[in-house]
Each structure stands twice: as structure tokens, then as C-alpha cells.
Amino acid sequence: MYKQILLFTALLFSGVSINAQDASKEILLALKEKMEKVEKYTVDALIRVEVDFINIKDREAKISFTAPDQFDFKSEGFALLPKKGMQMDYIKMMDGGFTSIMVKDEKVRDVTTKLIKVIPDDSTGDIVLAEMWVDASTSIMHRMRTYSKDSGTYTINFFFADHPYDLPDRVEVSFEVKNNKLPVSITGDFESLGKKAEEGSSEGKVIVEYSNYVVTGK
């Protein structure tokens, strides 16, 4: 129901034609097909976490991906990766069927992209709506925003260098984080007793830089 209302609303305000949906679907399928060419890869990642209440130095991790959705990462120390935003996740989302709407052309970092709204058919998944900024000529997604039931809104910017499979060399994931404090009894931090915790939420950002891709493709 929720999905339908969203779609309806999107249709109502975007003013795009029914034909546009077919075009958008084509673009997305082309993107999906291209992504699916990658069967397996390993890559070195440098992870930078920019969240108000988290202090962590940049971490190096080794990420490996095996199609269709096996995703693994290893690091020497402790490393945090955003829950959403690893681009392969969205192939999975499209697998269950989707409805898409071409909204408009929009420039993302000087690249003209098609902004497409995607609504997965399977309403049990976490993501209820995704917006994708895709360069139709190259089938490269430059930006994506997802709206989820449980994890709020994620905005992911993809940056590319020349790479045979058009895998990103830099991904920036922005999301909303709630500021909640742990009780003193756990932290043992009596120093902070007098201070007031900040309420509410703030934007968090994780930047992952990829290098040394080793890709096995089809």
C-alpha cells in the first residue's frame, strides 16, 4: 500500500510519461547486467568514518565479493562499514522485480544523469524506495539514495576512475545517526557526569576508497 502511494505521489509530481518508465527500466537493467558481469573481486579499502560520536582512525580492510551477494571484509584492526551502500546490494534489490520511474535529467558532478525512482516489488524488504542517478550512456550509477523502513535514509555517491568493470574507486555513504548515550555504569566515565548528552540525530558519513581491484568477470 505504502509503495503504491509513493508511486502515485511520484507520478503525480514528476509529471513523467508512462513511456518513461520503460526507458528507466531499460537503463536499470543495463546497469544491472553490467554489474552482474563481475563474478568475484577482492579490493583493498581505506575506510574513513565521519560520525560525530565515533572517533576512529582510517582503517585498511580487504573486501571480497562473490556473486550474487556474498560480501566479506577483513581488517587487521577493528573496522566499521556502513550497513547500506555497498553497491552490489542494489542488484539484489532489483532481483525481486521493481517498478521504476524516470524523473528527470540531473547533473551529478558535471555528468548528466537520469534520476530514476525505483520501488521494489517485494514489500517485505527493508528498502521501500531508491533514487538512482545513472549515466545512461555509460551505464554508470553516480549517486543513489535509499529510503528504508529501519535504517533511515542513505545517500551514496560513487566516484569512478577508469576501470574495465566500472567499479568505483571511492564511495561516500551519508546517513542519519541517532545520538544516544550509554549509561555511565558501562562506560565508567564519571567525568562526563555533569555534562548533558546531546539529543537528536546528526549526519554521519563513511568514505571508502578502493584500490587494487582483482576482478574475475564473465
Partner: peptide, 11 residues
């Protein structure tokens, strides 16, 4: 607190 937004790795 982190589980909402992150996946972790490490001991």
C-alpha cells in the same frame, strides 16, 4: 548503538 548503521569487523 552502532548496529543500526554499521557492520563491523575485528576483535
Amino acid at each position: 548503538q552502532l548496529d543500526q548503521n554499521f557492520q563491523f569487523e575485528g576483535n
